[in-house]
Design a protein around this nucleic acid. Structure first.
Lengths: 201, 201
DNA sequence: CCATCCATGTAACGGGTTACATGATTCG
DNA sequence: CGAATCATGTAACCCGTTACATGGATGG
């Protein structure tokens, strides 16, 4: 039950239409939550029916017309409650780890190429995050100045609480990418060194 | 499309019944893939219909009777192909990161308690993995002797390829837990230090 | 007018989750 | 027998994914 809250958060940061939301989910929001435009439209409909959001007045709501939404008090209350609620971390479920385990049984033929491909993808993602950090958070860890959504740029005051939280989220994303880069490097060392063979037991 | 391959891997390691599989998915397999018994039964049915697995001869297949499965050549081929195929890493989608981002908008009231709770859970999980490592992989990183599934214990030979791969997977799980422990510690430092306030913009 | 975007949807499908149902076995 | 337990299975729901449909605006 996280998508509606992701949308509420995004709409509180800035009222948007469905497609604008979809684009934001492909950019800044994308590094901790992803969603397609179909999911977003479906959820916008539910949120509107449940009174959490409202469509801003438009000339005439028709099929191809842009529709902007804003969050209502009920929506903000819902989000506030969710932030402080309880929700256990989900167990890991990673296809690549599963393939690794399967390779222990049927052999590692063809795996190293795939590991190299993933390594390159994660290195790329890490570099992208580093760019975002340099642009939005002054790169010095623990310090921030200026964000995408626009507070405080130019006067260089101390970072706000909100800035520090957003930076923290970005750093989690970077930490995760670094973890996979390191792990894949080690995995390549172990699988490329020895020849592939069907099982060992 | 990973669950069927998880089941094929588990069945190759040891032919099992549905519930036995479910129990294994709650134990050793659980640190990289999880599944409930309902998922498993549904998938066992599909795999049997598609000729990847076969039910071992039983006195009389009835509703409450145990049914053991083994992998057929087609199933092994399917798994082998999947291991070497292409599958992009999925973008991160973490509810806790999302809540953190939402807290940047609506305030961090009640969040630190939840962060502490998650921290304790991840510390616990890491400790459990460490126990498994000590028991199955002789604890020295890069070296292994003996596994859950039973090869080579007592003679202390070099670890097999399969052992090294399984250890690698376990280490990924441990690395992930350590990442969250570290990140949550840092997050607590930042959110507990300053008082919670609704936004900063 | 036609092609091309932009924007909002519908429909269908599969996986994951939860709750429940039913048949066998065991043990007091 | 009756209760608990093991074991297999059904049903319903929601989320995420893919493909497709429709309407409006823009430019050649």
């Amino acid at each position: 039950m996280s998508l509606p809250h992701a949308i509420l958060t995004a709409l509180l940061e800035r009222p948007s239409s469905g497609l604008e939301l979809a684009r934001r989910f492909d950019r800044s929001i994308g590094y901790f939550w992803s969603a397609t435009h179909q999911q977003i439209y479906r959820e916008l409909g539910r949120l509107e029916r449940s009174g959490c959001i409202r469509a801003l007045a438009s000339e005439r709501p028709a099929r191809g017309r842009k529709k902007e939404y804003e969050v209502l008090p009920a929506g903000r209350a819902e989000l506030t409650g969710w932030v402080s609620g309880r929700e256990d971390p989900k167990p890991v479920r990673d296809p690549l780890l599963l393939r690794m385990r399967a390779a222990a049984v049927v052999g590692t033929d063809g795996l190293p190429d795939e590991l190299r491909r993933h390594l390159a993808l994660h290195e790329r993602q890490l570099a992208d995050y580093a760019d975002i950090e340099a642009r939005d958070f002054s790169a010095r860890p623990g310090t921030a100045a200026g964000t995408t959504t626009g507070p405080a740029a130019g006067t260089t005051p101390g970072p706000t609480e909100a800035d520090r939280l957003r930076h923290l989220v970005l750093r989690a994303g970077m930490d995760l990418e670094r973890l996979w880069v390191d792990w894949l490097t080690e995995a390549l060392r172990e699988t490329s060194a020895a020849p592939a063979g069907p099982d060992g037991a």
